[in-house]
Amino acid sequence: MAIAIPFFQQLTGMNVIIFYALVLFRTIGFGSNASLMASMITGGFNALATFVSIFTVDKVGRRKLFLEGGA
Rank of each mutant, 00 (worst) to 15 (best):
L67W: 08
N46C: 11
F51S: 11
S53H: 09
F8A: 10
A71N: 13
I41W: 02
A34N: 06
G29M: 07
A38V: 00
A47Y: 13
L11C: 03
G13F: 00
F51E: 02
V52I: 15
F8T: 13
L65G: 03
G29A: 00
G70R: 10
L24C: 13
L65Q: 01
T12K: 10
V23F: 14
R26F: 05
M37C: 09
K64N: 11
T27M: 13
L36Y: 02
G61A: 00
L11G: 12
A38D: 01
L67M: 11
A49K: 06
M37D: 12
L65I: 02
I54W: 03
D58G: 03
F45I: 04
M1G: 07
D58C: 00
I17V: 10
I41H: 04
G70N: 09
F8P: 14
S35A: 02
T50A: 14
A49E: 07
S32Q: 14
K64Y: 01
G61D: 05
A2M: 15
A2I: 15
M14K: 09
S53V: 05
S32N: 11
G61V: 04
V60T: 02
A21C: 05
T56C: 05
F8I: 12
G43W: 03
L67K: 08
G43V: 08
A21V: 05
I41C: 06
G43N: 02
N46W: 15
G43D: 08
A71D: 14
M14S: 15
I17R: 09
T42C: 11
L48D: 04
A34H: 01
F25C: 02
F45A: 02
G31E: 11
F25V: 01
Q10V: 11
F19W: 08
I28L: 01
F55W: 09
S35I: 01
G44D: 09
N33K: 15
P6V: 02
I18L: 15
F45E: 04
S39C: 06
V52M: 10
N15I: 04
F19C: 08
R63P: 08
L11F: 11
L36D: 11
V57E: 14
G29H: 00
A38F: 02
G61P: 10
T42Y: 07
I54K: 05
A21D: 01
L65T: 00
L11D: 02
M37P: 07
S35N: 03
Q9F: 15
T56I: 13
S35G: 00
F30Y: 10
M14C: 14
V23G: 13
S39F: 06
A4Q: 15
E68Q: 12
G31F: 10
L65N: 00
A47D: 13
L22E: 11
A34W: 13
G61Y: 03
T12E: 05
F30K: 04
S53E: 09
A4S: 13
Q10W: 07
S35H: 01
R63Y: 12
A34P: 06
A38P: 01
I18F: 11
R63G: 05
T27K: 15
V16H: 09
L24W: 06
A71V: 08
V23A: 15
G61K: 02
N33H: 07
F19H: 06
A47V: 12
T56K: 08
D58I: 04
G70V: 07
F51P: 01
